[in-house]
């Protein structure tokens, strides 16, 4: 566990050693602010509800950008040989990488609290759904990061990792939009595997364990697959 945290800490610090992380975070906040304060947006929704939908879209490129290099860069440069010949389990490496990315995501989400806060100065707002909304974002974001770690374990090219993770997250996000075109029997399943279905429920202000369970399963599955993929180097 100590080693997991050591790895997470190194990744988290590493983000701030290059301009890439700053650019991603700033772009996220700027785009969010732009849409959030645009007259169109304000006119349509006087609440912060829409902010969460917007953030869930913005996470689609942001989460894969945070995870793309986690394992692929180690493979490309060869540092993975040093890392994996230290007395650390492969599972600790995967978990450490994931937690490193999760720390950055948490910082990003914390920064966005500025928006609801500024709205609250204009009028009263209901903080309950905002809290569940952040929980939904954290869960969906974590699921996207776990998928990103998985994609990063498949390749030594971080651009490929970015696109593969992005496509997978996009597919899980968009799939519920196609429900009207899907036969009745399959629709229930498709709805259940989509991010959006569970996200919507949480943002509405209801914490349903089934929705939480869904996101935790996606995280667990993706990380387990990443672990397998890392381990497979030994037998290839």
């Amino acid at each position: 566990m100590d080693r997991t945290l050591t790895i997470a800490k190194r990744e988290f610090r590493g983000y701030f050693n290059s301009p890439a992380a700053y650019i991603v975070v700033c772009l996220f906040l700027l785009l969010l602010g732009f849409f959030f304060w645009s007259p169109f947006f304000l006119a349509n929704r006087a609440s912060v509800r829409g902010m969460f939908d917007l953030m869930s879209v913005l996470l689609l490129p942001t989460a894969p950008a945070m995870t793309m290099g986690l394992l692929s860069e180690e493979k490309r440069t060869g540092t993975i040989e040093v890392l994996l010949t230290m007395p650390v389990r492969d599972s600790e490496v995967i978990l450490g990488k994931f937690l490193g990315a999760l720390s950055l995501l948490s910082v990003l989400l914390l920064l966005t609290v500025a928006y609801p806060l500024s709205v609250s100065t204009l009028g009263t707002i209901d903080w309950g759904p905002i809290l569940t909304g952040y929980l939904a974002l954290l869960l969906q974001g974590s699921a996207m990061l776990a998928i990103g770690v998985l994609a990063s374990s498949w390749t030594d090219n971080q651009l490929i990792a970015f696109f593969v993770a992005g496509m997978m997250c996009f597919a899980l996000w968009i799939v519920s939009r196609f429900l009207p075109f899907i036969p009745q029997q399959a629709a229930g399943i498709i709805e259940w595997i989509s991010f959006d279905y569970h996200f919507r429920n949480l943002v509405r202000g209801v914490i349903d364990t089934r929705n939480v369970f869904y996101f935790l399963s996606v995280i667990g599955l993706a990380l387990a697959m990443a672990f397998r993929s890392l381990e497979s180097r030994r037998w290839s």
Partner: peptide
């Protein structure tokens, strides 16, 4: 202790930071 062929190091770290990281990983 292992020095791989490529001598791959984390280029974004300071020498001291890197050694501290490895030390921590080594307990």
């Amino acid at each position: 202790g292992y020095l791989p062929e490529s001598t791959a190091l984390y280029h974004d770290m300071l020498v001291l930071e890197y050694l501290q990281f490895v030390a921590e990983m080594r307990g």
